[in-house]
Structure formats: C-alpha cells, structure tokens
Design a protein around this nucleic acid. Structure first.
Lengths: 165, 165
DNA sequence: CTTTTTAGTTAAGCAGACTTAAATATATGC
DNA sequence: GCATATATTTAAGTCTGCTTAACTAAAAAG
C-alpha cells in the first residue's frame, strides 16, 4: 500500500511539472505563429491521422459542420491546409496539410520536445536507461487502457486534442 | 549515443500518449463545469499560489489589467472567487477562491489524476517501484532546469498555465 | 498639502469560435 | 427518375477574451 502511495505521489509531482511546462511551451509556440489553439489542434489531427473530410473534423472536435467549415476556411486562407475534392464523392472534401502547414506543425512538435531533450541532458547514462524503461512501461500500460474499454462495447472517445471548451 | 536516442524515443512516445489523454480529460472537465480555459487557469493559480491581487494576475497571464479585471468579474459573479479589499492597501484587492471555487478545482485536479491512477493499477508492484524512481529523477531534473537559468540573470518566466493565446 | 504613481474598473470595439437556419450539390433508395 | 439523405457552405447572431482609452481612488514623493 505504501508502494502505491509512493507511486501516486511520484506521478502526480511529475504531472504537475510536466503539464506546467508543456502547456507553456505550446502556448508560446501557438502565439508565435499566430495560430489559435483550435487551429493548431486541427492541424495536429491532420498530421497524426492523415487527410480527412469535413464531417470527420466536426465529429472529432464535437462541433457543428458549420463551425468546422469556418475553422478550416481560415487555415485555407492562411495557406496551412488545402481543401481538395474527394474523387470518390464529389460532395465531400479532403483536407490536407500544405507544405507550410506540415512545416509549422513539425516545428510545433519539436518545440514541445525541446524541453525534455534539455532535461535528458541533465541525466546520467544510467538514469536515462532507467527512465527510458519506466516510460515504456507506462506507455504500454496507457495503450492497454485505451483499447480495453472499447472491446466492451462502451462508447469510444473520438476527439483528440480538443481542449476548446 | 544509442542510449540517448532510446531515451528520446521513449519520452516522446510517452509525451504523445500523455498529452493526448490529459488534454482531453481537462477539456471535458472544463466543459462539464462551464468554465473556460482562462477561467480555470486563473483558479488554478489561486489554488497553487494562494491569494493575490489583480496586478499579479495580469502579469502572470500576460494580459492587460483590464482583461484581468473582467475575467475575475465573471468568476466572482459565478461564485467561484471573491474580491476582498487588501487591508494593507485599500487600492488593491485580494482574490481568493470561495468554497465552491476550491471544490471545483480540486475536482478538476482529481479528474486529471484519475487516468494515471487507473494506469497505476495495471502495473505490477515491481513496475510501480521502477516507474516511481524514474519519475522522481525526471521531476528533480526538471526542477533543476527551472531554477538554473534564473540564477544567470536571464529573464524569468512568469506565467503558469497561460495557454490562452 | 499638492503632484505623481499605482491599483483597479468601466466602456467601446474587435476578432475568434461557436450556434442555428437556410441553401446547394451530389449520392442513394426504391 | 424522384424523393430523401448526406456533405458542405453561407449568413446572422451570440459569447468570450482581449485591447485601448478614459476615469476613480488611494498611496507615496516632494
């Protein structure tokens, strides 16, 4: 029981530090590009999950199709994404990152990683190995958590980085 | 060098999973309470750093005093915080969480922790010990990173959870 | 005391992210 | 083929968060 408590405290301490930092980093980056959070999130989606249609965006972000369309519109106007016609369904559009868009989000991702890279530099080789193993354990456990409930027919969760109220 | 790479990959994988989850959790919670992100962040500040005046809020969040005042206003109207007069300076106000406010953010924090608690349940005792140690290493290293640059007279960073563009 | 800072508020106005409602174009079902 | 359903856009209007500018009140400086 003490071990469980110890674990809880360790992870909470880490979460506090980590969230604090990465939120700040992210915010600063978004600010520097002039992108809003929803805009950035939308681009992240396209990056991680590939091209998709409007309706998929509106479902994932849990907003109306109208909202999705408008959000996309701004990104298109600013040259971050393109709205192409879906060859298999001429009603639908296929959203894709432009080169500018790709570059921007890659930069954003780098930004988010930069801090932990600095952090890595402050560890000894031995510590790095230890931490690395531990994180792999956590990542595996997390992936298990994600997939488990889905199998039991519970409603699966759709949105990804949807933080916008 | 391979060890460094291994570490980098482990932490990046973890970050992706972790950010994904905790952002979602946070967003859902904020939605359920009806609080916006800046409002929630402001309350987090009061929780973690205690009562403070308007000017401090406006500095930490990097917004004008007017914006801070208006933000606070809504929270006061909704009964989350109180604006008391500072006895030592009658121009200044002291912002404090109400019981309702305290309860709400404690719930929010719990929400954020819930997922990792579930995660902990999926680990063996041995794994928990291992992870716990690793996270402590990281937390210490992170704290070192925070304080180091300050000593060298570089501009210190003020804002905490300021994500709002 | 009077002047000047400092702390905070109020008002007017803008932009972003939503919403609903109505419109358009294409697929699909019978 | 025609009615209906689907994918998306446009328009109008709301709410939030922010900004600047003007204002009040109290503290500090002289």
């Amino acid at each position: 029981m003490t071990k469980a408590l110890q674990f809880t405290q360790s992870i909470r301490a880490w979460m506090d530090v980590f969230m604090h930092r990465s939120m700040r980093g992210w915010g600063l980056f978004a600010k520097s590009t002039g992108l809003s959070m929803p805009q950035f999130s939308l681009m992240m989606q396209l990056h991680y999950r590939g091209a998709c249609g409007m309706s998929e965006i509106s479902e994932r972000f849990e907003v109306t199709p109208a909202a999705a369309s408008q959000l996309v519109d701004k990104l298109v106007q600013n040259g971050y994404i393109v709205r192409e016609e879906d060859p298999s369904d001429r009603r639908a559009k296929l959203l894709n990152l432009t080169d500018k868009g790709k570059e921007t989000i890659l930069q954003g991702i780098e930004e988010r990683y930069r801090w932990v890279d600095q952090l890595a530099e402050r560890l000894t080789d031995e510590e790095r190995v230890q931490v690395s193993k531990a994180l792999d354990i956590m990542t595996r456990a997390a992936e298990g958590l994600e997939s488990k409930p889905a199998r039991q027919g519970q409603p699966s969760i759709k949105s990804t980085y949807s933080i916008h109220k």
